[in-house]
């Protein structure tokens, strides 16, 4: 048989064609690790953090910058932030290069049902480029439904959940646990569709540049 026939007939595990769209993360260590070379679009990505301020937003800044500064003539250009725990500070976002006019903040009423309803509505509308949501509790059924909706509409969906939930089962295609020690961000990939679990270390994740002299 010809070599070309072999190539088409043999399934090569790692290099299986990932035809899913991706958004480059902006960190080359992570890009190399993730299948497709970036955040997967059209599936749910779960990010687990112990506390806020460990660099969870800084991890997304390059991707957000890429998404919000696309050509204005194209539709689907805004990002929804659903139930953010604090105020996303506009001057800081601008410093990272994001067009803040493309961001929408949604504060659902108390109760995780309304939060999940809001996420589902935004994802299903098909008009947003991405959704960032802070979800304390969600069950597998709802997540599966969200994932189907995201796949249908091709929406970049990120859910931030407390680290205690990382042991639960979930249909999300990418699940990462983020911690930071000193300046180094540690991204532990718990589950990755089309790739292997592992740990990626990102140097100087999200810290402002400045002298590190301790002030008395």
């Amino acid at each position: 048989m010809e070599w070309d026939d072999w190539q088409t007939r043999v399934w090569r595990g790692k290099a299986a064609a990932i035809s899913r769209a991706v958004v480059p993360t902006g960190f080359h260590e992570l890009d190399r690790y993730l299948p497709g070379g970036g955040w997967p679009v059209g599936v749910i990505t779960e990010i687990f953090v112990d506390d806020y301020g460990v660099g969870e937003l800084a991890l997304l800044m390059p991707a957000l910058k890429a998404l919000t500064t696309t050509d204005p003539a194209k539709p689907r250009k805004w990002i929804a932030w659903i139930a953010p725990p604090f105020v996303p500070y506009a001057p800081a976002l601008q410093q990272h290069g994001i067009d803040i006019e493309r961001l929408l903040m949604i504060h659902p009423t108390a109760g995780h049902k309304s939060r999940l309803w809001a996420i589902e509505q935004v994802v299903r509308s098909g008009s947003s480029a991405g959704v960032l949501a802070w979800v304390p509790a969600a069950d597998e059924v709802i997540l599966r439904r969200l994932q189907l909706a995201a796949e249908d509409q091709g929406c970049w969906t990120l859910l931030f959940r407390p680290a205690s939930a990382r042991r639960q089962r979930s249909p999300a295609a990418l699940r990462i646990y983020l911690t930071r020690a000193e300046a180094v961000g540690r991204v532990e990939i718990i589950k990755c569709r089309g790739g292997r679990p592992g740990v990626v270390e990102i140097a100087s994740l999200g810290l402002p540049s400045g002298d590190s002299s301790a002030v008395a």
Partner: peptide, 24 residues
Amino acid sequence: ELVRVLFERLRERFGTEAVYGLSA
């Protein structure tokens, strides 16, 4: 139109104050 419909539904459910954009 899709965007408008979505905004209205969200505002309808959560109140007009709960859906907003940012400006510096």
